[in-house]
Simulated scan of single mutants.
Amino acid sequence: MANPVVVGVDGSPSSMAAVGTAAREAALRKTTLRLVHAFGWPSVRPLLGGPPWTPAAAGVRELVDGTLAEAEQRAREVSPPLDIAREVTVGEPVMVLEIESRTASLVVVGSRGLGGFGSLLLGSTAVHLAAHGHCPVLVVRGTPDPVAPVLLAVDGSPAGESAVEFAFAEASMRGAGLLALHVWNTWGEGASVGPDDPLDVVVDVERLREQEQRLLDDTLSPWQRRCPEVAVERRLTRSRIRPALIEASRDAQLVVAGARGRGGFTGLLLGSVSQALLHHAHCPVAVVRGNQ
């Protein structure tokens, strides 16, 4: 049996949506679903000599049990025979889930939990896990079309190989097609793309296009041979990278991206493209770090 799928539960609508997605992922993998609820340490320390703080002492055990029972019910609506485990622990939720990711096949979280400000598009837990998780992290957002393809953001980087593998596996398990989109723009995100593009004056654009096409083909060909059951559409687009991927996510059931692509700084754990998708994609986003 594969390692469990872990989902963070805090009772928010976002986390309950994540439970449903996590249940489907666990069913696809034929593995256990772990419902994890973490208590952050209270801001006020107990009086000197007083008993240590615990969920039971704080009178919230019934509340937690109710939240987890609701989450389990939601999971069983998605997959009745699912093997479900509950975990309640004391600690900062982001650190608890990072630890859980060490022995999970996938961690699923909502885009925003109970602790988030209304104006924030993405909770800190999701961002931290995408950058530091030890397994792929799936952030649930938007309303995906279940018959749409899985969208893979191809960047051609060695670190992105893990994202390619994950995308093919997801498409195969879901019985979905795979849209492999490689967006290129040599002058960077701020440059124009069109008749006035300065790139057209100083370089051979057609040669660059051929190089980018080879990169796309070389990235996908080995995996298409390994996964012949997955119907793959290869798409090469010259555009601004982040807006193009966000727009393409409108017609996808899942976006898969590496944590950091070719243009990232060496020490950067989460690149600008993956961050943009986490904040603005129109469907769930899976961020896959290389060498996990």
Rank of each mutant, 00 (worst) to 15 (best):
S192R: 14
P42M: 09
E189P: 05
G11F: 08
R102F: 09
S249M: 05
A252W: 10
R102T: 08
L179Y: 09
D83V: 14
V140A: 04
L278H: 02
V154R: 02
H128M: 06
E165W: 05
P81D: 15
A104R: 00
E25D: 07
G20F: 02
P81S: 04
V96E: 07
W187C: 09
F166Q: 15
P13M: 04
N291Q: 14
D10I: 00
L215E: 07
R102L: 11
P136D: 06
V64Y: 12
L208V: 10
P149V: 14
V202G: 07
A38Q: 03
G160D: 15
L268H: 09
G123W: 04
E70C: 05
K30S: 14
R76T: 03
G177H: 14
L278C: 10
R102N: 12
R102S: 10
M173F: 12
G160W: 07
L269T: 03
L33Y: 06
V201Y: 09
C227N: 13
G133E: 13
R141S: 05
R214Q: 13
S172P: 08
A191P: 02
P13R: 05
A191F: 00
T21V: 14
V60H: 04
L179T: 12
P93W: 11
P136W: 07
V88N: 10
P52Q: 08
A131R: 15
R141H: 01
A171T: 14
C283G: 10
W187N: 13
V36R: 03
A23Y: 04
V127P: 01
S272T: 15
A69L: 13
W187V: 10
L216A: 01
P243R: 00
P80F: 04
S101T: 10
V6T: 00
V285R: 10
P80V: 12
D217R: 12
Q224T: 13
W223D: 07
L220Y: 06
R226W: 00
L82Y: 04
P51K: 13
T32C: 06
V193R: 01
P93V: 10
T54F: 15
D196K: 08
